[in-house]
Design a binder for these strands. Structure first.
Length: 786
DNA sequence: TGGACCCAAGGCCAT
DNA sequence: TGATGGCCTTGGGTCCAG
């Protein structure tokens, strides 16, 4: 029979010595299905030493396989490695568990130089070789496996083809959000001792559930929750920090209570998988914290902050309870209601966030070819690499092993020193996707790179400026093909969108998809310069940025010839005086340089200091656009950012220096009078490693250590919020964690001098305002006292 | 002995 | 666990005038 289904998750197993690929999905009749393919065999390649006869080598390897061996075939095949033809030996297995064992055996054979593709997981290879992408519709010839009813899904065996179906719609996915609360008087969160008092759940169908401990007993909480998961049978499970908190705690707690934690579709228990991800078989588990990274506007990525930014909850109905207060709220019968409400809101926020972000995750899975539950957990490099596997296989390129060493840094984009001051009527032009287009134009790719010692005629190759790397003009390289395909796909989607109504689900999905194509296109350059990339080749990255510098410098020269003044330029953009004829200029640049340059925006007025990568301007619609300044930085306290924003607004809109200065002084006055809340003074910084591993003394590290002393658990990746208190010693000595701080013990002078005045003067200094004109500076104060 | 100056570490942002 | 360019703060050191 034929089965039409949408791929939700992909896994693998070995049964009776046979490798099987497990494809979980939702069929076109809203049924949940598992399609098993046992016809695809794992394999790897052996590269012979030079001067070794590959046929002889293959024969000698064949001799090593014993009668009941899992080896199904040893053949000589033609492939390419970095564009060079190679004859290699392909060894096919029945059971992927044997691959590494046989690598050890074959290593000892004379004439074997290297092994390739031994570390490619079976299902990853399956998807790449067969060009199957998760989160898409497929049609398969299958046979139902009987006797497996009443599991909430049907099982099929693939007996024929499996081919894509052009369908943009999504199946009716069932999404479950969950969130747990722990009763831990010590605050140490120990699953051996501390019960799970509340599990809150919310579904995309609007159902909300709560499983609450009775008399502090949590065995039933877990059991009832598991019962509900089985009953609702979700396709997608979402949490917030669920990879590192909710799931690990529940798994450990269930072990302690001897409750089988059966959240997987097949009744098994979840396990820790690649990229530090908790994998739930048959369902896609997404930790939305992984997606919070994309929300760059939110600097401190708590569930509440992300939910508020995405407007998934009504703000005024919020209950907020500090984690340390949970035991108190639980113990007090009067307060417990609030705790239950708080817990319910967390689950509701989580399902709300998932509704906004799931289309993005699905699109990234489609474009990268990675399963939905891994794609947002995996780094950008792995997403690109996964996408490249498919194309590599299609053109017979072997996947290289990661380089063991080498590398080093190389020069990047060119940044022009800005002309400082205020400029009126400035147009900004951008080269659209500059690096990918350069890679296409000059055929820059790991398989077109010409080794320095190779003899070539100059008209056969493109030679990069400054660095001199050469790339064959023909045939089209691996990257060129991939990038052109990505661009073409994106155009196709954009064209399809023209027929759709905005705000509808199909439109939103297609918009997310075209964005995903753009993101992946632009990520190829970053990938090629990444030391962890299998296709890492420094000259590829180095040549791309060198051509980029050439292009932007030529553009700057052309601008001058057109009589336009260049105010600033950074990598792929130029800021020029906006006069009549700028359109002609951009057409000429596009034509002469063979790379499309487009007008991006126009500033009615824009301000530069002497610093690069910092400017602020008024756009034509009147909005203030701030780039690089403290206003947009998460490591400056709100009070300083607010002052700077007001100063910039006053200067750009009203050109009123006195008014701007007055505003700063009023804020300083407000701070002195204690009319400022602690929240406005908190400085947030990320702990990038455990506090004890820092070589230096720094305020956020010192604050983190104080937090630990008070029972907190800051770790690598935690955002530390701190304020600077009064007293003796360095700033670090006086950094106090936000939660332990007292507004009456704030070092007012520090905030005035180092934060408010510092941020304000960054702008005001260019208009001649001196430090001494800002009231309450320590120096002036001391002078007065004298 | 205190201030000027320099540098490395660290974090975040622009592209 | 994509890249480089760049700004800025902090702490710690040296040098030197007084």
């Amino acid at each position: 029979m034929r089965l039409e289904f949408w791929i939700l998750d992909v896994g693998q197993t070995v049964e009776d010595g046979v490798s099987k690929v497990l494809i979980w999905g939702v069929d076109s009749r809203d049924g949940r299905v598992l399609v098993v393919d046992d016809t695809f065999q794992p394999y790897f390649y052996i590269v012979p030493e030079e001067d070794v006869n590959v046929g002889v080598l293959a024969e000698s390897l064949k001799g090593l396989s014993i009668s009941d061996s899992p080896i199904l075939g040893v053949d000589v095949v033609k492939r390419k490695l970095f564009g060079k033809d190679r004859d290699v030996v392909r060894v096919v297995f029945r059971d992927f568990d044997y691959v590494l064992k046989y690598v050890k055996v074959f290593k000892k054979v004379d004439g074997v130089e290297d092994f390739l593709e031994v570390d490619i997981r079976h299902y990853v290879r399956y998807l790449a070789d067969k060009r199957i992408r998760p989160c898409g519709w497929y049609s398969a010839e299958v046979q139902e496996v009987e006797g497996l009813k009443n599991r909430g899904y049907s099982v099929y065996r693939l007996v024929g083809d499996l081919k894509p179906v052009e369908l943009m719609d999504l199946p009716g996915l069932r999404v479950l959000a969950f969130d747990i609360e722990i009763y831990s008087p010590s605050g140490a969160l120990n699953p051996e001792k501390d019960p799970v008092i509340i599990i809150s759940a919310a579904t995309n169908g609007g159902v909300e559930k709560q499983f609450v401990a009775k008399n502090g007993e949590d065995r039933d909480v877990l059991k009832e929750f598991l019962g509900y998961v089985t009953e609702f049978n979700p396709d997608v499970i979402v949490g917030y920090d669920s990879n590192f908190f909710d799931f690990p705690f529940l798994i450990d707690r269930a072990k302690k209570l001897r409750v089988k934690f059966t959240v997987c579709r097949d009744g098994s228990e979840p396990h820790l998988s690649v990229y530090g991800h908790v994998s739930v078989a048959g369902r896609a588990h997404l930790d939305l914290y992984d997606m919070a990274e994309m929300v760059v506007e939110v600097k401190v990525k708590t569930l509440k902050n992300i939910a508020d930014y995405l407007r998934v909850m009504a703000k005024n109905s919020r209950v907020l309870i500090d984690h340390a207060q949970i035991p108190k709220y639980w113990d007090d019968k009067g307060l417990r209601k609030q705790l239950l409400l708080y817990a319910a809101q967390d689950a509701k926020s989580t399902i709300g966030i998932s509704e906004k972000l799931l289309p993005t995750a699905i699109s990234m899975a489609q474009v990268s070819g990675m399963p939905l539950d891994q794609v947002m957990r995996a780094g950008v490099g792995f997403r690109v690499e996964n996408m490249l596997l498919t194309e590599g296989h299609a053109i017979g390129e072997l996947i290289p092993n990661k380089p063991a060493f080498g590398g080093g840094t190389y020069a990047g984009g060119y940044v022009l020193q800005p002309v400082s001051g205020v400029h009126d009527n400035i147009a900004v032009f951008d080269f659209a996707s500059m690096y990918p287009n350069l890679m296409i134009k000059y055929n820059i790719s790991p398989d077109t790179y010409v080794q320095p010692n190779e003899k070539v005629s100059e008209d056969e190759v493109n030679i990069a400026p400054e660095v001199g790397h050469k790339f064959w003009k023909e045939p089209p390289g691996f990257y060129k093909r991939v990038i052109e395909e990505l661009i073409a796909e994106r155009r196709k989607i954009q064209k399809g969108m023209e027929k759709l109504k905005p705000q509808t689900l199909p439109y939103i999905m297609m918009n997310e998809r075209q964005k995903a194509f753009k993101i992946m296109t632009n990520a190829v350059y970053g990938y090629c310069g990444w030391l962890g990339a299998k296709w890492y080749l420094k000259p590829v990255a180095e040549a791309t940025s060198a051509w980029g510098r050439e292009i932007i410098k030529e553009t700057i020269e052309m601008t001058k010839k057109h009589g336009l003044k260049v105010i600033y330029a950074d990598t792929d953009s130029v800021f020029v005086t906006n006069v009549e004829g700028v359109d002609k200029f951009s057409r000429e640049v596009t034509q002469k340089l063979g790379l499309e340059i487009k007008p991006d925006k126009v500033y009615k007025r824009v301000f530069f200091t002497e610093a690069k990568k910092k400017y602020a301007g008024l756009l034509e619609d009147g909005a203030l656009d701030v780039v690089g300044f403290e206003i947009v930085r998460g490591d400056w306290p709100e009070i300083a950012r607010e002052v700077q924003e007001n100063v910039l607004n006053i200067i750009l809109r009203e050109k009123d220096l006195e008014k701007a200065t007055k505003f700063v002084n009023e804020t300083i006055q407000r701070l002195r009078e204690g009319k400022v809340s602690l929240d406005e003074l908190v400085i947030w910084e990320t702990l990038t490693k455990p506090p004890e591993k820092y070589k230096i003394k720094a305020p956020h590290v010192s604050a983190a250590k104080k937090l630990m002393a008070a029972g907190g658990r800051p770790e690598a990746g935690s955002k530390i919020g701190y304020v600077i208190g009064k007293g003796e010693g360095s700033i670090s000595d006086r950094a106090v964690p936000y939660s332990l701080a007292d507004i009456s013990n704030i070092d007012i002078d520090y905030y005035i001098e180092r934060q408010i005045a510092s941020a304000a003067l960054r702008v005001l200094e260019y208009f001649g305002v001196k430090e001494s004109q800002l009231s309450g500076k320590k120096s002036t104060r001391q002078a007065k006292l004298k």
